[in-house]
Design a protein around this nucleic acid. Sequence first.
DNA 1: TAAAAACTGTGACATAGATCACATTCATTT
DNA 2: AAATGAATGTGATCTATGTCACAGTTTTTA
Lengths: 193, 193
Amino acid sequence: MFDFLQKKVNDTISITNEEFDYAKTLFQPKKLRKRRFLLEEGETCIYTTFVEKGLLRSYTIDDKGNEHILQFALEGWWSGDLYSFLTGETSEYNIEALEDSELLLITKESWDQLLHEIPAFERYFRILIQNNLIATQRRLMGTFSTTAEERYQKLLKEFPDIIQRVPLHMIASYLGVTRETLSRIRSQMASGS
Amino acid sequence: MFDFLQKKVNDTISITNEEFDYAKTLFQPKKLRKRRFLLEEGETCIYTTFVEKGLLRSYTIDDKGNEHILQFALEGWWSGDLYSFLTGETSEYNIEALEDSELLLITKESWDQLLHEIPAFERYFRILIQNNLIATQRRLMGTFSTTAEERYQKLLKEFPDIIQRVPLHMIASYLGVTRETLSRIRSQMASGS
DNA sequence: TAAAAACTGTGACATAGATCACATTCATTT
DNA sequence: AAATGAATGTGATCTATGTCACAGTTTTTA
């Protein structure tokens, strides 16, 4: 059950089996069925989650009722609302399973303990967050400098698996356009060049 | 010279004077005059920078020649291109002083050493990057869910000092609109509500 | 297996913001 | 102090994307 997590962590840092055995005790497994929620707006995000199997999305709903997707989390990715998790404030995000999923959850207390007891994990999360920041900065600059079509093409190239597993209106929401616009982009791409 | 840095670090984590005395030896001071560059597109970002005094901006230039500002860095903030700094790849960013500035620079080697020797600094940078990620995620969701005017109002409220110290066409670029659009937003705000 | 819900496509029209062009004011440099 | 460049404002027009409305298809649920 924890092999995949161990492998992913070891891809980034070196930890001993003893250290990982300790880490294991701090996580709790959870199955989440399609269309069920790990977190809903207004709640506090009490877990950070590793996705062993399945697919999650985190999104906000704006004043007009439109959804905006912050992140898809596939197998091997982490999910959660960092701000709410760290501060204990209520979250503005919803986290929903898009497929039947198997998760490993860790609470703030356990997470603090893990980072404190095993400095390699402090390092691991620093690197994880660092890579996430780099990717988020690129996505932000991309929304300023490229058209919706270019962003779609890029996603198609970098994460073809996401496109295949996620309904198109959610892809549109991730790209920052309406489903109608994405639909037109796709039909243009199919006919035109 | 290092007092401000020490204070900022101590706001987040606890370090002893001995630890900080060691850290000091790894930074090199640099003065950068207005309109001079710390980093230019195509170079490798060999320093991460603490701003003691002054103001930097980091920005990219897209295919059409338009500038897009990723970050302003005021006194007490950090700047640099994380991706280039970490990987040694060439950068797509330019970092320019908008005022005569005083900086503290640290190379990748020294930074690695600092994080390795003093785990408290690993923790410090993890928290720094974490907060940056939270802010960047918010900015990204904001560009999807709010109008240019709302984003301008928010910036005005959260960072009035930036607005006062930075030319309006750069504010526009940070918000993801043209200078003409920001100009019209401002005149509407002045007359209208 | 029937009904309901979710998903996708497409036409007609509306709009926020971009683009281009020019004028004015303000700041730097020599 | 003059001259150059930087910054800002504003009108006219254009365009990518949004909005609304309806229809067809696929998937889920009872």
